[in-house]
Design a protein around this nucleic acid. Sequence first.
DNA 1: GGAAGCTATGAATGATGGTTCACTTCTTCC
DNA 2: GGAAGAAGTGAACCATCATTCATAGCTTCC
Lengths: 202, 202
Amino acid sequence: MAYRKTPAEIRRLSTAKDLLVARATEVVAEVGWSQASVTAVADAAGIAAGSVYQHFPSKAALAVEVFRRAAGHEVEVLGEVLHGPGDPVDRLARGVQVFARRALENRGLAHALLAAPAEPAVGAERLAHRRRYRALFAEVVREGVAAGALPAQNAEITAAALTGAIGEILVDPLGGPGGEDLDALLADLTALALRCAGAPRS
Amino acid sequence: MAYRKTPAEIRRLSTAKDLLVARATEVVAEVGWSQASVTAVADAAGIAAGSVYQHFPSKAALAVEVFRRAAGHEVEVLGEVLHGPGDPVDRLARGVQVFARRALENRGLAHALLAAPAEPAVGAERLAHRRRYRALFAEVVREGVAAGALPAQNAEITAAALTGAIGEILVDPLGGPGGEDLDALLADLTALALRCAGAPRS
DNA sequence: GGAAGCTATGAATGATGGTTCACTTCTTCC
DNA sequence: GGAAGAAGTGAACCATCATTCATAGCTTCC
Protein backbone atom coordinates (compact mmCIF):
# COMPACT_ATOMS: atom_id res chain seq x y z
CA MET A 1 0.00 0.00 0.00
CA ALA A 2 1.28 3.40 -0.84
CA TYR A 3 -1.12 5.53 1.08
CA ARG A 4 -1.86 5.96 4.69
CA LYS A 5 -3.70 8.85 6.23
CA THR A 6 -1.14 11.11 7.78
CA PRO A 7 -2.09 12.93 11.00
CA ALA A 8 -2.26 16.21 9.12
CA GLU A 9 -4.60 14.70 6.58
CA ILE A 10 -6.79 13.23 9.25
CA ARG A 11 -6.97 16.60 10.89
CA ARG A 12 -7.80 18.27 7.62
CA LEU A 13 -10.64 15.85 6.97
CA SER A 14 -11.90 16.27 10.44
CA THR A 15 -11.93 20.03 10.19
CA ALA A 16 -13.57 19.75 6.78
CA LYS A 17 -16.31 17.71 8.38
CA ASP A 18 -16.54 20.12 11.29
CA LEU A 19 -16.77 23.01 8.90
CA LEU A 20 -19.50 21.27 6.98
CA VAL A 21 -21.49 20.66 10.14
CA ALA A 22 -20.93 24.22 11.33
CA ARG A 23 -22.04 25.74 8.04
CA ALA A 24 -24.97 23.37 7.80
CA THR A 25 -26.02 24.50 11.26
CA GLU A 26 -25.94 28.09 10.11
CA VAL A 27 -27.99 27.29 7.06
CA VAL A 28 -30.55 25.41 9.11
CA ALA A 29 -30.77 28.23 11.62
CA GLU A 30 -31.36 30.67 8.79
CA VAL A 31 -33.75 28.87 6.50
CA GLY A 32 -35.01 25.87 8.47
CA TRP A 33 -34.64 22.18 7.81
CA SER A 34 -37.01 22.03 4.91
CA GLN A 35 -35.06 24.58 2.89
CA ALA A 36 -31.65 23.21 3.79
CA SER A 37 -31.04 21.08 0.72
CA VAL A 38 -27.84 19.15 0.25
CA THR A 39 -26.86 21.59 -2.45
CA ALA A 40 -27.49 24.62 -0.27
CA VAL A 41 -25.51 23.18 2.60
CA ALA A 42 -22.65 22.07 0.38
CA ASP A 43 -22.52 25.50 -1.23
CA ALA A 44 -22.38 27.14 2.17
CA ALA A 45 -19.49 24.91 3.12
CA GLY A 46 -17.75 25.58 -0.19
CA ILE A 47 -17.80 21.98 -1.37
CA ALA A 48 -19.63 20.05 -4.05
CA ALA A 49 -22.90 18.34 -3.29
CA GLY A 50 -21.35 14.94 -3.85
CA SER A 51 -18.65 15.64 -1.30
CA VAL A 52 -21.16 15.70 1.49
CA TYR A 53 -21.32 11.96 1.04
CA GLN A 54 -17.64 11.65 1.85
CA HIS A 55 -18.52 12.64 5.38
CA PHE A 56 -22.03 11.35 5.88
CA PRO A 57 -23.86 8.37 4.42
CA SER A 58 -27.01 10.37 3.87
CA LYS A 59 -28.54 13.76 4.30
CA ALA A 60 -30.46 12.49 7.29
CA ALA A 61 -27.21 11.51 9.01
CA LEU A 62 -25.82 14.98 8.49
CA ALA A 63 -29.03 16.52 9.79
CA VAL A 64 -28.90 14.36 12.89
CA GLU A 65 -25.29 15.34 13.51
CA VAL A 66 -26.16 19.02 13.14
CA PHE A 67 -28.99 18.61 15.57
CA ARG A 68 -26.95 16.64 18.09
CA ARG A 69 -24.14 19.11 18.26
CA ALA A 70 -26.32 22.14 18.64
CA ALA A 71 -28.72 20.50 21.04
CA GLY A 72 -25.93 18.95 23.06
CA HIS A 73 -24.38 22.31 23.56
CA GLU A 74 -27.63 23.87 24.73
CA VAL A 75 -28.32 21.07 27.17
CA GLU A 76 -24.82 21.38 28.52
CA VAL A 77 -25.17 25.08 29.16
CA LEU A 78 -28.53 24.66 30.82
CA GLY A 79 -27.26 21.75 32.88
CA GLU A 80 -24.42 23.80 34.25
CA VAL A 81 -26.78 26.47 35.48
CA LEU A 82 -29.27 24.04 36.94
CA HIS A 83 -26.62 21.93 38.62
CA GLY A 84 -24.70 24.93 39.87
CA PRO A 85 -24.62 26.36 43.35
CA GLY A 86 -27.50 28.06 45.07
CA ASP A 87 -30.86 26.97 46.31
CA PRO A 88 -33.10 25.09 43.89
CA VAL A 89 -35.62 27.85 43.35
CA ASP A 90 -32.93 30.34 42.38
CA ARG A 91 -31.36 27.86 40.06
CA LEU A 92 -34.70 27.19 38.46
CA ALA A 93 -35.23 30.88 37.86
CA ARG A 94 -31.79 31.29 36.39
CA GLY A 95 -32.21 28.17 34.29
CA VAL A 96 -35.38 29.51 32.75
CA GLN A 97 -33.68 32.79 32.05
CA VAL A 98 -30.69 31.16 30.43
CA PHE A 99 -32.82 28.86 28.34
CA ALA A 100 -35.12 31.63 27.24
CA ARG A 101 -32.43 34.20 26.64
CA ARG A 102 -30.40 31.86 24.50
CA ALA A 103 -33.46 30.82 22.55
CA LEU A 104 -34.61 34.36 21.95
CA GLU A 105 -31.18 35.63 21.05
CA ASN A 106 -30.60 32.92 18.51
CA ARG A 107 -34.13 32.45 17.40
CA GLY A 108 -33.29 30.63 14.19
CA LEU A 109 -31.36 27.90 15.89
CA ALA A 110 -33.81 27.59 18.74
CA HIS A 111 -36.64 27.29 16.30
CA ALA A 112 -34.81 24.59 14.39
CA LEU A 113 -34.12 22.68 17.58
CA LEU A 114 -37.52 23.01 19.15
CA ALA A 115 -40.15 23.50 16.52
CA ALA A 116 -39.30 23.72 12.84
CA PRO A 117 -40.69 20.96 10.63
CA ALA A 118 -38.04 18.36 10.02
CA GLU A 119 -37.55 14.90 8.62
CA PRO A 120 -38.40 11.97 10.86
CA ALA A 121 -34.82 11.26 11.91
CA VAL A 122 -34.48 14.77 13.26
CA GLY A 123 -37.90 14.52 14.84
CA ALA A 124 -36.74 11.55 16.85
CA GLU A 125 -33.68 13.44 18.02
CA ARG A 126 -35.88 16.30 18.98
CA LEU A 127 -37.94 14.11 21.25
CA ALA A 128 -34.79 12.96 23.01
CA HIS A 129 -33.67 16.55 23.28
CA ARG A 130 -36.89 17.67 24.86
CA ARG A 131 -36.65 14.80 27.31
CA ARG A 132 -33.23 15.94 28.40
CA TYR A 133 -34.49 19.44 28.99
CA ARG A 134 -37.41 18.10 30.90
CA ALA A 135 -35.25 15.83 32.99
CA LEU A 136 -33.00 18.72 33.93
CA PHE A 137 -35.83 20.96 35.02
CA ALA A 138 -37.65 18.13 36.76
CA GLU A 139 -34.60 17.34 38.82
CA VAL A 140 -34.34 20.86 40.17
CA VAL A 141 -38.06 20.96 40.88
CA ARG A 142 -37.74 17.75 42.84
CA GLU A 143 -34.87 19.18 44.81
CA GLY A 144 -37.00 22.19 45.60
CA VAL A 145 -39.83 19.97 46.77
CA ALA A 146 -37.47 17.90 48.89
CA ALA A 147 -36.04 21.07 50.43
CA GLY A 148 -39.53 22.25 51.28
CA ALA A 149 -39.21 25.31 49.07
CA LEU A 150 -41.82 24.06 46.62
CA PRO A 151 -45.13 22.28 47.16
CA ALA A 152 -45.61 18.64 46.27
CA GLN A 153 -46.25 18.26 42.55
CA ASN A 154 -45.70 16.19 39.46
CA ALA A 155 -42.25 17.49 38.62
CA GLU A 156 -42.29 16.04 35.12
CA ILE A 157 -45.37 18.01 34.23
CA THR A 158 -43.99 21.19 35.67
CA ALA A 159 -40.81 20.66 33.69
CA ALA A 160 -42.75 19.96 30.52
CA ALA A 161 -44.72 23.12 31.04
CA LEU A 162 -41.58 25.19 31.40
CA THR A 163 -40.09 23.95 28.15
CA GLY A 164 -43.46 24.15 26.46
CA ALA A 165 -44.00 27.71 27.59
CA ILE A 166 -40.66 28.92 26.36
CA GLY A 167 -41.07 27.07 23.09
CA GLU A 168 -44.48 28.58 22.64
CA ILE A 169 -43.24 32.11 23.20
CA LEU A 170 -40.40 31.41 20.84
CA VAL A 171 -42.51 30.11 17.98
CA ASP A 172 -44.92 32.99 18.12
CA PRO A 173 -43.57 36.01 19.96
CA LEU A 174 -46.25 37.88 21.82
CA GLY A 175 -47.77 40.71 19.87
CA GLY A 176 -45.71 40.11 16.78
CA PRO A 177 -41.96 40.48 16.34
CA GLY A 178 -40.29 42.84 18.76
CA GLY A 179 -43.49 43.38 20.65
CA GLU A 180 -41.80 43.49 24.00
CA ASP A 181 -38.26 44.06 25.03
CA LEU A 182 -36.18 41.09 26.01
CA ASP A 183 -35.62 41.96 29.66
CA ALA A 184 -39.27 42.54 30.38
CA LEU A 185 -40.14 39.29 28.67
CA LEU A 186 -37.54 37.43 30.68
CA ALA A 187 -38.86 38.90 33.90
CA ASP A 188 -42.38 37.84 33.04
CA LEU A 189 -41.23 34.40 32.04
CA THR A 190 -39.32 33.98 35.27
CA ALA A 191 -42.34 35.00 37.28
CA LEU A 192 -44.42 32.51 35.35
CA ALA A 193 -41.91 29.75 35.93
CA LEU A 194 -41.85 30.35 39.67
CA ARG A 195 -45.63 30.36 39.82
CA CYS A 196 -45.70 27.13 37.79
CA ALA A 197 -43.39 25.48 40.26
CA GLY A 198 -45.43 26.88 43.12
CA ALA A 199 -42.72 29.02 44.65
CA PRO A 200 -44.05 31.31 47.39
CA ARG A 201 -44.89 34.75 46.04
CA SER A 202 -42.20 37.24 46.65
CA MET B 1 -77.17 26.88 -22.10
CA ALA B 2 -78.45 23.41 -21.66
CA TYR B 3 -77.25 22.62 -18.21
CA ARG B 4 -77.79 24.03 -14.81
CA LYS B 5 -76.84 22.41 -11.53
CA THR B 6 -79.93 21.00 -10.01
CA PRO B 7 -80.29 21.24 -6.21
CA ALA B 8 -79.76 17.52 -5.89
CA GLU B 9 -76.56 17.74 -7.89
CA ILE B 10 -75.30 20.62 -5.81
CA ARG B 11 -75.98 18.66 -2.69
CA ARG B 12 -74.23 15.65 -4.10
CA LEU B 13 -71.13 17.68 -4.89
CA SER B 14 -71.18 19.35 -1.54
CA THR B 15 -71.41 16.10 0.35
CA ALA B 16 -68.69 14.66 -1.85
CA LYS B 17 -66.50 17.55 -0.82
CA ASP B 18 -67.43 17.12 2.81
CA LEU B 19 -66.67 13.45 2.61
CA LEU B 20 -63.31 14.20 1.07
CA VAL B 21 -62.44 16.61 3.85
CA ALA B 22 -63.66 14.21 6.50
CA ARG B 23 -61.67 11.30 5.14
CA ALA B 24 -58.63 13.49 4.63
CA THR B 25 -58.87 14.53 8.26
CA GLU B 26 -58.87 10.90 9.30
CA VAL B 27 -55.88 10.15 7.15
CA VAL B 28 -53.98 13.11 8.54
CA ALA B 29 -54.84 12.13 12.09
CA GLU B 30 -53.56 8.64 11.40
CA VAL B 31 -50.41 9.18 9.43
CA GLY B 32 -49.60 12.87 9.72
CA TRP B 33 -49.43 15.56 7.09
CA SER B 34 -46.23 14.40 5.54
CA GLN B 35 -47.62 10.96 4.71
CA ALA B 36 -50.99 12.22 3.57
CA SER B 37 -50.38 12.29 -0.17
CA VAL B 38 -53.08 13.29 -2.59
CA THR B 39 -53.33 9.68 -3.69
CA ALA B 40 -53.70 8.39 -0.15
CA VAL B 41 -56.38 10.93 0.66
CA ALA B 42 -58.25 10.33 -2.58
CA ASP B 43 -58.14 6.58 -2.04
CA ALA B 44 -59.53 7.03 1.46
CA ALA B 45 -62.38 9.06 0.04
CA GLY B 46 -62.97 6.53 -2.71
CA ILE B 47 -62.21 8.88 -5.57
CA ALA B 48 -59.41 9.28 -8.10
CA ALA B 49 -56.46 11.50 -7.35
CA GLY B 50 -57.41 13.88 -10.13
CA SER B 51 -60.87 14.35 -8.69
CA VAL B 52 -59.46 16.08 -5.66
CA TYR B 53 -58.86 19.00 -7.98
CA GLN B 54 -62.57 19.28 -8.70
CA HIS B 55 -63.01 20.45 -5.15
CA PHE B 56 -59.76 22.19 -4.32
CA PRO B 57 -57.30 24.11 -6.46
CA SER B 58 -54.33 22.50 -4.78
CA LYS B 59 -53.32 20.07 -2.13
CA ALA B 60 -52.38 22.96 0.12
CA ALA B 61 -55.92 24.34 -0.11
CA LEU B 62 -57.33 20.99 0.93
CA ALA B 63 -54.88 20.77 3.79
CA VAL B 64 -55.83 24.22 4.99
CA GLU B 65 -59.50 23.32 4.84
CA VAL B 66 -58.88 20.15 6.82
CA PHE B 67 -56.97 22.12 9.40
CA ARG B 68 -59.54 24.88 9.63
CA ARG B 69 -62.46 22.61 10.18
CA ALA B 70 -60.80 20.53 12.85
CA ALA B 71 -59.17 23.46 14.58
CA GLY B 72 -62.30 25.55 14.40
CA HIS B 73 -64.25 22.87 16.13
CA GLU B 74 -61.70 22.55 18.91
CA VAL B 75 -61.57 26.27 19.50
CA GLU B 76 -65.34 26.39 19.60
CA VAL B 77 -65.56 23.69 22.23
CA LEU B 78 -62.89 25.31 24.35
CA GLY B 79 -64.48 28.70 23.96
CA GLU B 80 -67.80 27.44 25.23
CA VAL B 81 -66.22 26.16 28.39
CA LEU B 82 -64.11 29.22 29.00
CA HIS B 83 -66.94 31.62 28.30
CA GLY B 84 -69.44 29.59 30.28
CA PRO B 85 -70.79 30.30 33.72
CA GLY B 86 -68.80 30.11 36.92
CA ASP B 87 -65.92 32.02 38.37
CA PRO B 88 -62.85 32.52 36.20
CA VAL B 89 -60.57 30.17 38.08
CA ASP B 90 -63.02 27.31 37.82
CA ARG B 91 -63.51 27.97 34.15
CA LEU B 92 -59.79 27.99 33.63
CA ALA B 93 -59.45 24.64 35.34
CA ARG B 94 -62.25 23.15 33.31
CA GLY B 95 -60.87 24.65 30.12
CA VAL B 96 -57.52 23.01 30.66
CA GLN B 97 -59.21 19.74 31.38
CA VAL B 98 -61.33 19.91 28.26
CA PHE B 99 -58.43 20.91 26.06
CA ALA B 100 -56.18 18.23 27.47
CA ARG B 101 -58.77 15.49 27.53
CA ARG B 102 -59.76 16.08 23.94
CA ALA B 103 -56.15 16.18 22.85
CA LEU B 104 -55.19 13.03 24.68
CA GLU B 105 -58.26 11.12 23.57
CA ASN B 106 -57.71 11.94 19.94
CA ARG B 107 -53.99 12.12 19.95
CA GLY B 108 -53.55 11.79 16.22
CA LEU B 109 -55.67 14.79 15.42
CA ALA B 110 -54.27 16.86 18.24
CA HIS B 111 -50.78 16.10 17.11
CA ALA B 112 -51.64 17.11 13.57
CA LEU B 113 -53.15 20.36 14.80
CA LEU B 114 -50.48 21.29 17.28
CA ALA B 115 -47.21 19.75 16.34
CA ALA B 116 -46.83 17.48 13.33
CA PRO B 117 -44.56 18.74 10.57
CA ALA B 118 -46.62 20.30 7.83
CA GLU B 119 -46.34 22.38 4.72
CA PRO B 120 -45.99 26.14 5.14
CA ALA B 121 -49.63 26.91 4.43
CA VAL B 122 -50.72 24.68 7.28
CA GLY B 123 -47.97 26.10 9.46
CA ALA B 124 -49.46 29.54 9.04
CA GLU B 125 -52.89 28.27 9.99
CA ARG B 126 -51.38 26.62 13.00
CA LEU B 127 -49.96 29.90 14.22
CA ALA B 128 -53.39 31.47 13.94
CA HIS B 129 -54.87 28.52 15.76
CA ARG B 130 -52.43 28.77 18.64
CA ARG B 131 -53.19 32.46 18.88
CA ARG B 132 -56.86 31.75 19.25
CA TYR B 133 -56.19 29.27 22.01
CA ARG B 134 -53.94 31.74 23.70
CA ALA B 135 -56.42 34.54 23.40
CA LEU B 136 -59.12 32.42 24.97
CA PHE B 137 -57.02 31.44 27.95
CA ALA B 138 -55.60 34.92 28.35
CA GLU B 139 -59.06 36.38 28.52
CA VAL B 140 -60.08 34.16 31.40
CA VAL B 141 -56.82 34.84 33.21
CA ARG B 142 -57.45 38.56 32.89
CA GLU B 143 -60.92 38.13 34.24
CA GLY B 144 -59.46 36.28 37.20
CA VAL B 145 -56.96 39.04 37.81
CA ALA B 146 -59.67 41.68 37.56
CA ALA B 147 -61.81 39.74 40.01
CA GLY B 148 -58.92 39.58 42.45
CA ALA B 149 -58.80 35.79 42.30
CA LEU B 150 -55.42 35.76 40.55
CA PRO B 151 -52.31 37.88 41.08
CA ALA B 152 -51.22 40.48 38.56
CA GLN B 153 -49.37 38.85 35.68
CA ASN B 154 -48.69 38.82 31.99
CA ALA B 155 -51.80 36.95 30.93
CA GLU B 156 -50.48 36.26 27.44
CA ILE B 157 -47.49 34.45 28.82
CA THR B 158 -49.56 32.43 31.20
CA ALA B 159 -51.86 31.50 28.35
CA ALA B 160 -48.95 30.55 26.14
CA ALA B 161 -47.56 28.39 28.89
CA LEU B 162 -50.84 26.54 29.29
CA THR B 163 -51.06 25.66 25.62
CA GLY B 164 -47.36 24.91 25.51
CA ALA B 165 -47.56 22.61 28.48
CA ILE B 166 -50.44 20.61 27.10
CA GLY B 167 -48.79 20.42 23.71
CA GLU B 168 -45.60 19.24 25.28
CA ILE B 169 -47.32 16.49 27.23
CA LEU B 170 -49.15 15.50 24.11
CA VAL B 171 -46.11 15.24 21.88
CA ASP B 172 -44.18 13.15 24.31
CA PRO B 173 -46.35 11.49 26.94
CA LEU B 174 -44.61 11.22 30.26
CA GLY B 175 -42.83 7.95 30.77
CA GLY B 176 -43.73 6.57 27.38
CA PRO B 177 -47.16 5.67 26.05
CA GLY B 178 -49.71 4.82 28.66
CA GLY B 179 -47.36 5.71 31.46
CA GLU B 180 -50.03 7.27 33.56
CA ASP B 181 -53.75 6.98 33.53
CA LEU B 182 -55.71 9.78 32.02
CA ASP B 183 -57.51 11.00 35.11
CA ALA B 184 -54.38 11.28 37.19
CA LEU B 185 -52.67 13.14 34.38
CA LEU B 186 -55.59 15.52 34.07
CA ALA B 187 -55.55 16.19 37.79
CA ASP B 188 -51.84 16.95 37.70
CA LEU B 189 -52.27 19.17 34.67
CA THR B 190 -55.07 21.08 36.33
CA ALA B 191 -52.99 21.61 39.43
CA LEU B 192 -50.16 22.87 37.26
CA ALA B 193 -52.44 25.23 35.39
CA LEU B 194 -53.76 26.75 38.59
CA ARG B 195 -50.26 27.21 39.93
CA CYS B 196 -49.22 28.81 36.63
CA ALA B 197 -52.03 31.30 36.92
CA GLY B 198 -51.17 31.89 40.55
CA ALA B 199 -54.43 30.65 42.04
CA PRO B 200 -54.29 30.35 45.80
CA ARG B 201 -53.39 26.84 46.91
CA SER B 202 -56.36 24.80 47.86
C1' DG C 1 -83.41 10.16 -27.74
C1' DG C 2 -79.69 13.04 -28.09
C1' DA C 3 -76.94 17.27 -27.90
C1' DA C 4 -74.44 20.06 -24.58
C1' DG C 5 -72.04 20.60 -20.61
C1' DC C 6 -70.51 18.93 -16.47
C1' DT C 7 -67.85 15.59 -13.43
C1' DA C 8 -64.64 11.56 -12.82
C1' DT C 9 -60.69 9.12 -14.18
C1' DG C 10 -55.83 7.71 -13.97
C1' DA C 11 -51.91 7.63 -16.80
C1' DA C 12 -48.63 11.09 -18.33
C1' DT C 13 -46.10 15.29 -17.05
C1' DG C 14 -42.96 18.14 -14.50
C1' DA C 15 -40.53 19.79 -10.63
C1' DT C 16 -37.89 18.91 -6.79
C1' DG C 17 -34.01 17.15 -4.50
C1' DG C 18 -31.37 13.13 -2.62
C1' DT C 19 -27.94 10.00 -4.32
C1' DT C 20 -24.55 7.87 -7.51
C1' DC C 21 -20.48 7.51 -10.32
C1' DA C 22 -17.02 8.16 -13.93
C1' DC C 23 -13.68 11.30 -13.78
C1' DT C 24 -10.34 14.82 -12.03
C1' DT C 25 -7.33 16.46 -8.50
C1' DC C 26 -4.60 15.98 -4.58
C1' DT C 27 -1.46 13.09 -1.06
C1' DT C 28 1.53 9.77 0.20
C1' DC C 29 5.53 7.13 -0.05
C1' DC C 30 9.40 4.87 -2.43
C1' DG D 1 9.51 11.97 -10.12
C1' DG D 2 5.90 8.85 -10.39
C1' DA D 3 2.79 5.02 -9.15
C1' DA D 4 -1.01 3.97 -6.03
C1' DG D 5 -4.78 5.29 -3.76
C1' DA D 6 -7.78 8.59 -1.51
C1' DA D 7 -10.79 12.74 -1.68
C1' DG D 8 -13.45 16.05 -4.52
C1' DT D 9 -16.47 17.10 -8.35
C1' DG D 10 -20.91 17.92 -10.58
C1' DA D 11 -23.70 16.26 -14.11
C1' DA D 12 -26.73 12.40 -14.65
C1' DC D 13 -29.87 9.38 -12.34
C1' DC D 14 -33.85 8.14 -9.93
C1' DA D 15 -37.77 8.27 -6.78
C1' DT D 16 -41.45 10.82 -5.14
C1' DC D 17 -45.45 13.37 -5.59
C1' DA D 18 -48.41 17.28 -6.92
C1' DT D 19 -50.64 18.56 -10.92
C1' DT D 20 -52.58 18.25 -15.65
C1' DC D 21 -55.32 16.60 -19.46
C1' DA D 22 -57.35 13.68 -22.98
C1' DT D 23 -60.92 10.62 -22.46
C1' DA D 24 -65.04 8.37 -20.65
C1' DG D 25 -69.20 8.57 -18.14
C1' DC D 26 -73.23 11.24 -16.20
C1' DT D 27 -76.98 14.90 -15.96
C1' DT D 28 -79.79 18.09 -17.71
C1' DC D 29 -82.99 19.85 -20.79
C1' DC D 30 -85.44 20.08 -25.22
